[in-house]
Amino acid sequence: MKNQSLKKMTRYSVMIALTTVMTMVIHIPTPATKGYLNLGDMVVFLAAIMFGRKGGFVVGGLGSGLADVLLGYTHYAPITFIVKGLEGFIAGSLLGTKLGEKAQIIPLALGGVWMAFGYYIAEIFMYGAKAALASIPGNIVQGLFGAVVASVLSMALKKTGMFDVN
């Protein structure tokens, strides 16, 4: 039992670090909202696929929030923790349904749409409705891109037998 907990913590930690790195490697600033676009969603979705809703939340919230802090977007870190955490939670929850078993991409895409909506709501209070609206297209593209890449990558990893998370 103790070994299983250590294994789980290690896997979560690696995915949190990978989320942080993928968020930081390519980040494209969005001047209207003082935020940025990135590749971290792909890893958040992989965590949701591998670990379910709890892992999706932990990896999404902590990994993405840490990237905000390290990149100097500290004003976004609490919002990111909630929005990206819920992105992973939503995707992980829906992956366990019949819909998720049939078409993995749909729960991931819905998680990405939530992410765009979650930032939109927060940014209304931060910058006003017009600036918040300007961030929606980029965030939707970022979320959907992450969903597609994570879905394809997870299928490839499952074929190698290296995707066992037990």
Results as ranks from 00 to 15, higher is better:
residue 6 L to Q: 11
residue 103 A to D: 07
residue 144 L to Q: 02
residue 144 L to G: 15
residue 74 T to E: 14
residue 96 G to L: 00
residue 71 L to S: 09
residue 78 P to W: 01
residue 23 T to Q: 02
residue 72 G to H: 06
residue 133 L to E: 07
residue 4 Q to Y: 04
residue 59 V to M: 00
residue 68 D to T: 11
residue 74 T to P: 08
residue 111 G to V: 01
residue 129 A to D: 04
residue 94 L to V: 10
residue 48 A to I: 04
residue 67 A to C: 05
residue 147 A to W: 12
residue 128 G to K: 10
residue 119 Y to N: 10
residue 15 M to I: 10
residue 104 Q to A: 14
residue 114 W to M: 01
residue 133 L to W: 08
residue 97 T to V: 02
residue 41 D to P: 14
residue 122 A to R: 10
residue 75 H to R: 09
residue 59 V to E: 05
residue 100 G to A: 01
residue 105 I to K: 04
residue 31 P to Q: 04
residue 98 K to V: 03
residue 64 S to L: 03
residue 129 A to E: 04
residue 5 S to I: 13
residue 72 G to S: 01
residue 151 S to P: 11
residue 79 I to V: 15
residue 118 G to A: 08
residue 133 L to M: 11
residue 124 I to Q: 02
residue 23 T to N: 01
residue 145 F to K: 01
residue 1 M to P: 15
residue 76 Y to V: 13
residue 3 N to P: 12
residue 35 G to W: 00
residue 27 H to Y: 05
residue 49 I to E: 03
residue 11 R to H: 12
residue 142 Q to R: 04
residue 116 A to S: 10
residue 50 M to H: 11
residue 91 A to Y: 06
residue 70 L to T: 15
residue 25 V to S: 07
residue 60 G to H: 08
residue 110 L to F: 13
residue 94 L to C: 11
residue 117 F to Y: 12
residue 138 G to N: 07
residue 107 P to C: 04
residue 104 Q to F: 12
residue 162 M to H: 03
residue 53 R to E: 07
residue 145 F to S: 10
residue 67 A to R: 08
residue 57 F to D: 03
residue 14 V to T: 13
residue 134 A to H: 03
residue 82 I to D: 05
residue 10 T to M: 03
residue 165 V to P: 08
residue 137 P to W: 12
residue 151 S to N: 15
residue 111 G to Q: 06
residue 135 S to K: 14
residue 151 S to D: 13
residue 47 A to F: 05
residue 76 Y to I: 14
residue 155 M to F: 10
residue 131 A to M: 10
residue 3 N to F: 03
residue 156 A to H: 14
